[in-house]
């Protein structure tokens, strides 16, 4: 598990302001018809990016300075809606390794955990400060330190949090849960035996 340990993520930061950014926007459904996750990075925010271009703007994921960024700054309820893992898969394959936001949908958070994509939480005020600092220093690097519970960017350091079990799973490299869940299958059978419906109430 040592190779899977995640304690600190450093990389260029990218800000995507706005509450309630849903997974249909992160990865539109028509790209879910593929039977692998390969190439999902090409479709991240594809409709939002096209809409921005039509309106004469540049979407943050298209800004030249943001190419190669790995720390994503967001606001409230990021990743709400559909359970599609294609959304965090696409973000991770695009290069994102950590997300700093006010809050996340639980399914998105869980899906991200399964990929070792750290989603940490900061206050609204601190995210405003982080985004302002990044706007003043485009392309600045951010460091998310899970052990210290901080995010630092352009000389600014703010506290970030994560539920204890999720943080421990990342820091000990135990975030790939399948092996753990399989390792004591006799316990699983014992749990099933306690449930009257498993035997059809006979």
């Amino acid at each position: 598990m040592d190779a899977l340990r995640i304690t600190e993520i450093t990389g260029r930061a990218l800000a995507l302001p706005g509450d309630d950014i849903d997974t249909d926007r992160i990865l539109p459904a028509r790209f879910l018809r593929a039977i692998t996750f390969e190439g999902m990075e090409a479709h991240v925010f594809v409709d939002d990016r096209a809409a921005a271009t039509r309106a004469g703007h540049v979407h943050p994921f298209d800004e030249p300075v943001n190419q190669g960024a790995s720390v994503l700054l967001v606001n409230r309820n990021f990743g709400c809606g559909s359970s599609r893992e294609h959304a965090p898969q696409g973000l991770r394959r695009w290069g994102i390794r950590a997300i700093v936001g006010e809050s996340y949908s639980e399914i998105f958070f869980g899906n991200s955990m399964m990929l070792g994509l750290a989603c940490v939480t900061a206050t609204h005020a601190d995210l405003e400060r982080l985004m302002a600092a990044l706007a003043a220093h485009p392309g600045a690097a951010a460091t998310v330190d899970l052990k210290a519970g901080t995010c630092s960017l352009a000389g600014l350091t703010v506290p970030v949090t994560m539920p204890g079990p999720a943080r421990d799973a990342l820091m000990t490299g135990a975030w790939d849960t399948t092996g753990l869940l399989k390792e004591r299958y006799e316990d699983v059978n014992a749990a099933a035996a306690r449930l009257p419906y498993v035997a059809g109430f006979r």
Partner: peptide, 25 residues
């Protein structure tokens, strides 16, 4: 089933329903 070392709960699932979109991988 048990509490995992991380503190998460290992929960037995009584019924697993699957469909075409979220399962091939």
């Amino acid at each position: 089933v048990r509490t995992l070392p991380s503190g998460q709960t290992q929960l037995f699932i009584g019924l697993h329903l699957i469909h075409e979109v979220t399962t091939p991988q």
